[in-house]
């Protein structure tokens, strides 16, 4: 039930190979990863302390920045081969993001925040159309699954942090991108809400057949994931950095 499509199993959601990244002006590499992959529909917990380069890796996976060496592929597509504009559209079509905090545009309603993902991506709308539904209906369906039914019309600024994170999850999920990337999405939540949110995210990704790349410094949240990866283990830049220190 979890891994519905054959294609989803064969093509990794994320594949990083011989990749090296250094921020402009930085003295040394932030990331140097020989090999890292997230399988189709796989749910990976990526652990690393603060400042270890987790968000940087997610920026690379999103194609917002490009590595100086090596490749980052999403859904089999090496991102560096795409032109900047196409890469931005590719991200809109194939990757859903949930951040730590302030995920929403404060001047839009919860509903419009969710729909925004579809407005930037024709592919998400098309996938919904194939399933015989519309962006509005899907936003409604996700909202009721995430217990947001009665706050959809409210302005994002009026929502509680927990509600905001669930709206962000709905926005990442709408239109069924193959990969959901979550960057410490629970760090602003109360301890007892954290696990509930993660379980929700895991369920929805499974339901949508999406892979989940979840990063956090907090290993206690890593239950229920298919696999746990320690960034320090795969990042040679960090090893050499620590050795030097």
């Amino acid at each position: 039930m979890q891994r519905q499509t054959a294609a989803g199993r064969d093509v990794p959601a994320v594949a990083v190979a011989a990749m090296r990244y250094r921020w402009p002006g930085a003295a040394r590499d932030c990331l140097a990863i020989e090999q890292f992959a997230v399988g189709g529909g796989e749910r990976v917990f990526l652990r690393g302390p603060s400042g270890s380069g987790k968000t940087t890796l997610l920026s690379l996976v999103g194609g917002v920045i490009l590595p100086q060496a090596g490749t980052v592929s999403v859904a089999g597509q090496p991102l560096a081969r795409l032109s900047a504009g196409v890469r931005d559209r590719f991200r809109a079509d194939h990757v859903g993001f949930v951040f730590q905090l302030f995920n929403l545009l404060p001047y839009l309603s919860a509903r419009d925040n969710i729909l925004l993902a579809c407005r930037f991506s024709a592919a998400r709308r098309a996938r919904l159309a194939v399933r015989g539904t519309s962006a509005e209906a899907e936003a409604q369906r996700l909202a009721s699954r995430l217990e947001l039914g009665d706050v959809l019309h409210r302005s994002a600024a009026e929502l509680s942090v927990g509600q905001q994170q669930r709206v962000a999850a709905a926005r990442a999920l709408i239109g069924r991108p193959g990969l959901i990337v979550a960057d410490e999405p629970t760090s602003a939540l109360d301890a007892d809400r954290q696990q509930a949110f993660i379980d929700l995210l895991l369920d929805e990704c499974a339901e949508a057949g999406a892979a989940l790349l979840f990063v956090s410094h907090d290993l206690r949240l890593a239950r229920h994931f298919d696999r746990i990866v320690d960034l320090a283990q795969i990042n040679q830049a960090a090893v050499s950095g620590e050795a030097a220190a």
Partner: peptide
């Protein structure tokens, strides 16, 4: 600035 980052994540290009 964070609004801009959200838009980027949603697929907005720098020209947009």
């Amino acid at each position: 600035r964070r609004e801009l980052a959200i838009l980027r994540a949603l697929g907005a290009s720098p020209p947009q």
